[in-house]
């Protein structure tokens, strides 16, 4: 059952590969990578939270606010650059600072107050969307700051700089989460809170860390969101949220241990992007794409819940 999403996904890929032959060309693959960027980065954040909170869909770790946080940070940066004449450094500091505050809020709600992560981060997500609207008056802000344009267009030996930066970011996250004692402790907390506690690890501290890490991911994603959209577009968190959840849990189906991992989440983001591009290449109606993505999320999350049940 746990491999069902992976199997269905591979079938879809084969089908797309056959019906949309240009899908596997180099230029398309590079497009797929580029389009996966903001999703991949927020997935890194979600992966941290799920690894620290466990993959129980209801009571485990989840952070639905990362996309809204990213969009909020992007809005603040754009607003500062364009409407307040701030320098990039100030704009980035304000935007990313706001994102980190969201992380602190989540950590307090979940760890100190003891709300379920699902509800706490849903609430903070709504708050972030609201603040975004206040900041931007729901308007799009065009940004043509050279650094943002550079991030959008620059290439290094034919490879998008944004893709390279994202890959580096993934590597940093990987080392932190999978190759350090801290990362192992984080995973231990997510695997079994009691086991971590008897091993002398403080689950609360690490869960709080995970929400901060998620906020950092949101903050970093904001810059790439700005680059991709050549500005800030309110409302782009919805699609991002959908893809983030799908990608992260899909990645679990592909990981050898069937749990959420950093590489799994990043791979998931690329696969989701591939799916989007593939469907559009063969002319599938956008509403059907939505249906298929929704069905996949259901399948992925249901199979995670089911295999959890089997384990007990």
């Amino acid at each position: 059952m746990a491999v069902a999403p992976a199997a269905i996904f591979l079938l879809l890929l084969v089908y797309l590969g056959v019906t949309a032959p240009n899908l596997l060309e180099l230029s398309t693959l590079s497009l797929i990578l580029q389009q996966s960027i903001p999703t991949a980065i927020v997935c890194m954040g979600l992966a941290s939270v799920v690894m620290a909170g466990g993959d129980d869909v209801v009571s485990g770790g989840i952070d639905l606010s990362i996309p809204a946080t990213a969009v909020l940070a992007a809005a603040i940066i754009a607003d500062q650059l364009v409407n307040h004449g701030s320098g990039l450094a100030v704009a980035l500091m304000l935007g990313m600072g706001a994102a980190l505050l969201m992380g602190v809020l989540n950590a307090v709600l979940v760890v100190t107050i003891g709300m379920t992560p699902l509800l706490a981060t849903l609430a903070s997500s709504v708050a972030a969307v609201g603040i975004t609207k206040v900041v931007t008056s729901s308007r799009r802000i065009n940004v043509d700051h050279p650094l943002i344009v550079f991030l959008r267009d620059a290439q290094f030996h034919g490879i998008s700089v944004a893709v390279l930066l994202t890959a580096m970011l993934a590597l940093i996250f990987y080392v932190a989460l999978h190759r350090t004692r801290w990362g192992m402790h984080l995973q231990a907390v997510g695997g079994s809170r009691d086991a971590a506690e008897v091993s002398g690890i403080s689950p609360k501290r690490l869960m709080a860390h995970s929400f901060l890490i998620a906020a950092v991911a949101g903050a970093l994603a904001s810059v790439f969101l700005l680059a991709r959209g050549s500005g800030s577009t309110p409302g782009s968190e919805e699609n991002l949220l959908l893809e983030m959840v799908l990608a992260t849990f899909l990645g679990a189906a592909f990981s050898p241990r069937r749990v959420v991992t950093l590489w799994g989440a990043v791979l998931g983001a690329v696969l989701v992007s591939l799916l989007s591009v593939g469907f559009k290449s063969i002319g599938v109606d956008v509403f059907w794409t939505g249906c298929i993505k929704g069905a996949l999320i259901l399948l992925v999350v249901a199979s995670a819940a089911y295999s959890n049940k089997q384990r007990r």
């Binding site: 192992m184 009691d194 091993s199 690890i201 069937r258």
Partner: peptide
């Protein structure tokens, strides 16, 4: 040795044995 096992199902034996007391150097675990 408590009655409950306190183990993480998806951890390896080595990860479980060294949980909370991991061996790490300058280059990570």
């Amino acid at each position: 040795i408590h009655q409950e096992l306190h183990l993480v199902p998806h951890f390896t034996v080595a990860e479980s044995v060294f949980m909370g007391q991991e061996l790490a150097g300058a280059f990570g675990l």
